Amino acid sequence: MASIFGHSLVAYTVAKVVDSKSSKLLVFLAIGSSVLPDLDVLGFLFGIDYLHPLGHRGFTHSILFALLWTGLLTFLFGKSRPFIFTVVLFLSTISHGVLDAMTSGGEGVGFLIPFDNARYFFPFREIKVSPIGVEKFLSEWGVRVILSEIQYIAIPCGIILLIHFFLNKS
């Protein structure tokens, strides 16, 4: 998986590019939605196997989950601007699986669960997989993850945000 920082930065970028004047609520929900799929690591505590549909990178990383989660949040919080909320929250939620499918480790992402339990990676897999747990993240491995995320997530997001800013400057 990419780290919480990489996922959050993509969600922030999505929120700002889709809606330059995104409310703090929408940005908060987008960032929360981008990291939510990794709650599936709690399954390890209950003996759920990694490759089980409810295991890590399973259902919570799927397109169906992103649609259901987006629908719920849009219904609860997006009544004034449902289209914007839907687009931002769906892209933020699904971006989690997209980034994970570009990492150097793991067993792939179950984008099509529950319809197909296959796990997928993208051909581009240069983002270093993030360790699970704070202690492991504060190690040489964690430093390599941050450096790869700067290169493959932060710099592209920064460029996109700068271009967006200058194109929309009035």
Rank of each mutant, 00 (worst) to 15 (best):
S3Q: 12
T103P: 04
L9Q: 03
S22F: 08
I127Q: 08
A2D: 11
L89Y: 11
L26H: 02
D116S: 14
G55E: 06
P53Y: 09
A30I: 03
A2V: 14
R144H: 15
L67E: 13
N168Y: 02
T70I: 10
L36D: 12
S80R: 09
V88Y: 12
A154Q: 06
V98M: 05
S34D: 09
L39S: 10
V88E: 08
T93M: 01
Y120I: 00
G133M: 11
M1I: 00
S34P: 14
N117L: 07
E140I: 06
S33H: 09
C157G: 04
P131I: 00
G55Y: 10
L68S: 12
R144T: 15
N168R: 04
E135H: 06
S20R: 12
D49N: 09
F75I: 01
A2S: 12
H56G: 00
K79R: 15
V18R: 01
W141G: 07
S22W: 09
K136Q: 14
S23C: 02
I146P: 06
E135R: 06
S33F: 08
S104Q: 07
S33W: 07
L45D: 13
E126A: 11
Y120V: 03
S130G: 10
T93K: 05
G105N: 08
V14M: 09
S33A: 08
L42C: 11
W69M: 13
L76T: 11
S95C: 01
K79M: 03
S80F: 01
A11H: 06
R81I: 00
L89M: 08
L161S: 00
G71V: 13
I94K: 05
L72I: 15
N117G: 10
D40A: 03
V14W: 15
L99Q: 13
L112Q: 04
L67S: 13
G158L: 09
A30P: 05
F166Y: 14
F122K: 00
S95M: 02
R125N: 15
L89D: 10
S62Y: 14
P37H: 03
T60I: 08
V27H: 08
F5Q: 04
S80W: 01
G142W: 14
E140Q: 06
G71H: 14
V145G: 03
Y152V: 06
F28G: 12
A11V: 00
